[in-house]
């Protein structure tokens, strides 16, 4: 090898790299779809492909024309946020009048239980049932109209949705206290619970209204006469330190004795 000349081995390796490099470029050119990157990090033509899919779902507005009753019922019920086709399946063909068969009527218990079976991870207030205990072996629609599912005996109170809390409270020392004694609840909470969250007590003084030593047991606390009860008293300033009362006593079922 002479100095000043590119060494042979560099040429050989360079050649291989050139080969690999060009073949990669060729492969890329061959495999990358033409429209890739035009609109973003994806194949722009995909938009057209997806748009050309046959439409399967019509949307609830489409049903209005012929099934006014069901639409009206559903839109004023707890199921107002559901779409008709969530339960009846894709019905675009039916809505356009071309289908030979009517959409199915999902009358089994299974469909309802997808959403209403009791699960710990569901949010508090979501109506849930334990399948084995709730009218077993009867079809749900015999009692609940799927388009307006409020049960035939509409729960007048909070227990319809907060059943667990209501049940616990009913057998607790706080049984004589209605939920509204401690929670200010707007009537809209019954219709749109999540956008009208009731107020919860937030300070120790609230429990002190009844339990602070030196305070007479109220004869009318938000409509409840408590004089018949022996309300136990504590020194609100020292009892339990600075912690909130419900950090030690579960408010819906307080225990001390």
């Amino acid at each position: 090898m002479k100095s000043g000349k590119i060494p042979n081995q560099v040429l050989q390796v360079g050649f291989v790299f050139l080969l690999v490099g060009t073949s990669m470029i060729l492969v890329r050119q061959h495999f990358i779809p033409e429209s890739f990157g035009e609109l973003g990090h994806y194949r722009a033509d995909a938009v057209g492909v997806i748009a050309s899919h046959e439409i399967q779902f019509a949307g609830w507005q489409a049903c209005m024309e012929c099934h006014e009753d069901q639409v009206a019922a559903k839109n004023n019920s707890f199921h107002r946020t559901l779409s008709c086709e969530t339960c009846h399946g894709a019905a675009a063909e039916h809505a356009s009048g071309e289908a030979e068969e009517d959409p199915p009527l999902p009358t089994g218990r299974a469909l309802c239980l997808t959403c209403h079976r009791y699960l710990v991870s569901r949010p508090t207030g979501f109506p849930q049932i334990i399948e084995e205990l709730h009218e077993p072996a009867k079809l749900c629609h015999t009692c609940h109209d799927p388009h307006d599912p409020t049960p035939s005996e509409r729960p007048e109170s909070c227990s319809g949705c907060h059943a667990a809390i209501a049940r616990v409270k009913a057998v607790s020392h706080h049984a004589p206290l209605d939920c509204e004694v401690c929670h200010e609840v707007a009537p809209e909470h019954f219709l749109r619970p999540r956008s009208n969250i009731p107020r919860k007590p937030f300070e120790r003084a609230f429990c002190g209204n009844c339990h602070a030593a030196g305070v007479d047991t109220p004869a009318n606390f938000r409509g409840v006469d408590l004089t018949a009860f022996e309300v136990p008293k504590v020194d609100q300033d020292t009892h339990g330190g600075t912690l909130l009362c419900w950090q030690c006593h579960y408010q819906h079922s307080p225990e001390a004795r």
């Binding site: 090898m1 002479k2 100095s3 060494p7 042979n8 081995q9 560099v10 050989q12 390796v13």
Partner: peptide, 18 residues
């Protein structure tokens, strides 16, 4: 070896540098 043949001291020294 990509057909390489050159094992002169210069070439080998280059290998080491590389």
């Amino acid at each position: 070896s990509l057909g390489s043949r050159d094992v002169s001291p210069g070439a080998v020294a280059f290998d080491h540098k590389a």
